[in-house]
Each structure stands twice: as structure tokens, then as C-alpha cells.
Amino acid sequence: MDDERPIFLQVAELIENQIVDGSMPEGAQVPSINELAAFHRINPATALKGVNRLVDAGLVHKQRGIGMFVSPGARARLLGQRREAFAEQYLRPLLAEAAKLSIGPAELAEMVRQEAGSAAGPAGVVGTAPHV
């Protein structure tokens, strides 16, 4: 857990990341509040707040007496949200730094093409999102 952002947000994001990268598929059981608290060494109330955020967003649902599960369509919705946020989280900082270095959009596009070409690993690898 980093010091900057609320812990409950970080808990929610860690679960979201696992939904996005497929390690927690739809229908999969989400760790219990107590498991999350013990694993992250955080107060259970904080873990609950993080999970409730996912429940409120419809990404995770509770089944009384059984546990919490990843909801149908959760991954597609998260992917949609992340695509929308992509420009703000990644492109704007990239462009700001490029501007400082006098790298114009055309040159930047060429750099992106080259970098993508040289890093031609398996397609569709999902990286972990850096904190913004």
C-alpha cells in the first residue's frame, strides 16, 4: 500500500486489476473481507470500504452466506472505463513531457511506432497500470 492514496481505493484497484487481467474471471469468488485485511495488513473496515466500492459499481455482488463474486460483464465495463481514462492518465502526461523536450506529435507518433515494433512481444499483453 502506498502512502498517498486512500487504502480502500488501492484495495478496490487491486481487485479491479485482477478482473481486467483475467486472473479473477466473471463468477469467480472474491476474497473475503477478513482475508483481504489479513493479506494487506489493513483494518477490516478499510477492506470492506474498498469492496463496497466494487459492489456499488456493480462489478462484484454478494451472495448471502456464501461470499462475493465477480459480476457478469465486469471485465468489459472495466475495460471500457480504462479506455476512457487512457487519454487523461497516459497520453496527457506523455504529451506534456514530450512538449518539454520539443518532441512534436508527428515525431512522437514515429517513436511510438518504433517502440511498439521493437517490443514486438506477444500481442495483447496487459500491463499493470502505474499509479497516477
Partner: peptide, 13 residues
């Protein structure tokens, strides 16, 4: 100590 306290607190608030 912290781990045991947290685990037992979670089970027995």
C-alpha cells in the same frame, strides 16, 4: 502480534 491481533479482531470484532 499485529497479524494475530488483526486476524482475531476480524473474527471477533
Amino acid at each position: 502480534f499485529y497479524d494475530r491481533l488483526l486476524a482475531d479482531y476480524a473474527e471477533h470484532p
